[in-house]
Design a protein around this nucleic acid. Sequence first.
DNA 1: AACGAAGTCAACCGCTAATTT
DNA 2: GAAATTAGCGGTTGACTTCGT
Length: 202
Amino acid sequence: MAPKKNDGSTKRIMNKGAWTAEEDRKLAEYIEIHGAKRWKTVASIAGLNRCGKSCRLRWLNYLRPNIKRGNISDDEEDLILRLHKLLGNRWSLIAGRLPGRTDNEIKNYWNSHLSKKINHKEKTLQNSRAQETATPSQKDSGTEGDEGGGGKESVNNSDVNFDVNEFFDFSAEGSYGLEWVNKFLELDEDTMNYSEKVSNIM
DNA sequence: AACGAAGTCAACCGCTAATTT
DNA sequence: GAAATTAGCGGTTGACTTCGT
């Protein structure tokens, strides 16, 4: 990327760290009037000594209307697990399918809760597999599933590659409903591979 | 009760992609 | 078409809380 220009020779010291109620109020007020865009100017005009990025993050993760906080339900958890299996660490995409949830929240939830659960699950699975090694089972090429575990990317783990973006058609607004998820989950009956899923859903 | 370890989560950072000038 | 600016993403950090000893 182009080297960042530091406009103005005098470097302003920006506020960092936790937001105060007063800052929240200013930001929310400003956005209500002017909308959520041009974050750099939001920060200065709203009288917030914060960088635009920080304002954006605060708005998206906490101040935005219809944000759900905490209490991730079992259904949501299940959905996150499945979507992560499918998409990997694409938190914003996953969040986009969970109304009211933010990418940051899901990422945190994954890192603190789910990744451990999965590790544990994998370990027990490995143990049971180890005991079964006596039986020369069918080749386990595609079976990994690799619940995302520690592994960075699980998107391409399967034998089938497909364009996730195309699959989800992210350009389509209003697809936040969960119908597509239900379709997907219905189809997620183990052996069916992704290309089959795609053609079924399309 | 005190203290250290582990867990949680809000916020920051560095980067790329997209958009504007 | 190039440069500058803005938006957005995922990874990481660090302050705070909870738990175990």
